[in-house]
């Protein structure tokens, strides 16, 4: 097979890295620009550094940064921990189930992954209203928590627990709760991997909060920013740029600190041909 020069591949890789970085660099620098300058994306550096957007954001005059950020974190963490707890427990239950019952119960989780919330968008709003959960964070948390992703992830993770360990625990007379704890000990890194991955997914999922939440006090930051965008063309867009940076940092920080764990955990789970 004909070889492609190495430098060409490296040049393209470098180009892609720049392509991944540039918009963020532009966004950061744009948070110091006036509107007239901001609509020139080919100009990277601000002509005059202006910190007004950061001051406005900090004072909470245009959008409530602290409230929006807190809501976004609360919704994402809440969905993540709920999905992890429910998925982990259900997979633990499936581990000790056998035959067609196990297959049938696993299919339920697969169905929950394959059929997304978009299909149920309208009934979800109606059901939340009937349950008195409309405009309540719990409607988003419970809907997000019912994902099948956690179940499928932990089914794979539990396959890596050595059978000898379980046999030893059974000989020692370990009950269900002790085994639950033992599984937790053995799959800690996978659990961390799932928490990181699912947090990132929840951080981006805007449809559920858009449908199920209404009042400004409950909206996560991206949806509060949307109302700002709709308000007027004259509002300082640099505020939007500064607020957007706050949305990038949380998942970035988690990714950075959990990189090794995420890489190992995903590597193990994804390497299994049954995934």
């Amino acid at each position: 097979m004909k070889q492609v020069p190495k430098w060409l591949g490296r040049a393209f890789f470098l180009f892609w890295i720049c392509l991944s970085c540039y918009p963020f660099l532009w966004m950061f620098l744009s948070s110091f620009k006036q509107n007239t300058e901001l609509f020139r994306p080919d100009r990277l550096w601000p002509q005059q550094w202006d910190f007004f957007a950061w001051q406005l954001l900090w004072k909470g005059e245009l959008i409530s940064l602290k409230q929006g950020l807190w809501n976004a974190l609360y919704l994402s963490f809440g969905q993540t921990f709920l999905a992890a707890f429910l998925g982990y427990s259900y997979s633990f239950f499936l581990y000790f189930t056998k035959g067609r019952v196990k297959l049938g119960l696993t299919v339920l989780a697969v169905a929950a992954v394959v059929v997304p919330a978009q299909v149920m968008a309208i009934p979800l709003v109606q059901i939340s209203q009937r349950l008195g959960l409309y405009d309540n964070a719990w409607s988003v948390l419970l809907t997000g928590g019912s994902t099948g992703l956690g179940v499928l992830y932990f089914i794979q993770a539990f396959k890596r627990i050595p059978k000898t360990l379980l046999d030893a625990a059974a000989i020692d007379g370990a009950g269900s709760l002790q085994l639950y704890g033992l599984f937790f000990q053995e799959s800690k890194s996978h659990l961390l991997g799932f928490l990181l991955l699912f947090f990132m997914l929840c951080w981006h999922a805007h449809l559920l909060p858009l449908l199920l939440l209404h009042s400004e006090a409950n909206l996560p930051l991206p949806l509060s920013m949307r109302s700002l965008l709709d308000s007027s063309l004259r509002f300082p867009r640099a505020v939007l740029m500064a607020a957007s940076l706050f949305l990038i940092f949380p998942p970035l920080i988690f990714f950075m600190f959990g990189y090794r764990s995420l890489k190992n955990s995903l590597g193990e789970v994804l390497s299994d041909p049954d995934v």
Partner: peptide
């Protein structure tokens, strides 16, 4: 992964 970590609205 920077692009995927960024919310679609941004």
């Amino acid at each position: 992964v920077l692009p995927i970590l960024t919310p679609p609205s941004v």
